[in-house]
Write a protein that binds this DNA or RNA. Structure first.
Lengths: 217, 217
DNA sequence: ACCTGAACACCGTTCAAGT
DNA sequence: ACCTGAACACCGTTCAAGT
């Protein structure tokens, strides 16, 4: 079985524009200058090629975004379902999921409507979560709504991460919004990051509620 | 005080390009052809004016989007906080909130990071919700995280609304994802719309958990 | 004060022509 | 099979020139 080392005769394979190289360069552009700097022209330049050459390897920019999405899913940890109790595992999984997409916000509208069959890694993640929920004893017809609800919260929370820290500043309207202004002050005094605090509270509330038996109204 | 009826002399006021007219036409473009058809050029044409003329009245397209956002907030009902018990009121408010932004998905990334002081109607909505939460007895420092968590779920759920109905179709991968495939089948048998079902379950789970006393871990 | 027309600096994408 | 260069059909935005 040791075929490694042997090499098919001829054709040394330039292998210049592979999916791997394209997505790697795309991710580099993104981490350097955000998604605004991910354009087909700049990507082509980073690969030392003309923009039109890209279209021999990827159908559209939207397709490229799906490639990136697929790559980025690698960072989400599902191994904790093997060891931790369900509630704890869901918390950790959701947290890593949110943190990954907080760094890739423009991918959210794409993954949110992407058929699972177009993203093998997303699909296998779902499979692992579905299995864990079933083992826990959740009713079969509750598994998908549970996953979708958690995901919606995860995506929304990832987007919230981009909000400026002073988004709730009301110094110009204090008199008109007394309760809100006071609530903002009270939260600020906790010294907690608002996004993180909200995510943790919402997540633990939702998980508790979703896993409770007979919560169907 | 009856100044109505009197009219300042001179200047009959053409009033051709007002904020009201601009946003009204923009909304019409959106409802006719979605947000893809909302471009400055088409908006100008619908107003019978050249594209550059728009920039005498609005600073940028992003600013225009904020105008639309502000207008759209009108559709969200907060009067139920006056009559219904908190849990029921939150459910109805969140549902109308989600349904509004399901029709305006491209506004979500904008409102998610928009300082409240730039959107009076959003601010007054927050004030009403904050007051209701305080009257209920929620701790002062829990009010903001509660609102933010609900909003994140609302935004994520609004986006989920755009997913194709067959997003979970796995006919090509059944063998690799047995649990997930079975869960999809079970949910499908309920005949419920997946987005609506997930939203309702997630919302009621989250509200219950967030309003429970001493849920801080 | 507000409009027009031309222009600018980009986008994503297509396509004939080359090797 | 894969690349280049030119072109197309758009974007949002600016600005001198008009009234």
């Amino acid at each position: 079985m040791t075929e490694s080392g042997t090499r098919r005769a001829g054709r040394p394979r330039k292998a210049v524009l592979t999916r791997e190289r394209i997505t790697a360069n795309a991710l580099e552009l993104v981490s350097d200058g955000g998604y605004e700097s991910l354009t087909m022209q700049r990507l082509a330049k980073s690969l030392g090629v003309s923009p039109s050459a890209l279209y021999n390897h990827v159908d559209s920019k939207h397709d490229l975004m799906q490639w990136i999405q697929e790559l980025v899913m690698t960072d989400i940890d599902t191994t904790i379902f093997d060891t931790e109790p369900l509630t704890e595992a869901l918390m950790q999984w959701a947290t890593s999921y949110r943190n990954v997409f907080a760094r890739h916000i423009p991918l959210i509208p794409i993954i949110a409507v992407l058929p699972v069959s177009d993203s093998p890694r997303t699909l296998s993640m779902y499979e692992r979560v579905a299995e864990a929920l079933k083992d826990y004893g959740l009713a079969e017809n509750e598994i998908i709504p549970t996953i979708v609800a958690l995901e919606s919260f995860i995506f929304g929370s990832a987007m919230d991460t981009a909000a400026p820290h002073d988004i709730f500043d009301t110094t110009n309207h204090q008199d008109l919004t007394p309760h809100f202004t006071q609530a903002v002050a009270a939260q600020r005094k906790t010294q907690l990051n608002t996004s993180d605090d909200s995510f943790q509270r919402g997540l633990s509330a939702m998980i508790t509620g979703l896993l409770a038996k007979g919560n169907a109204s």
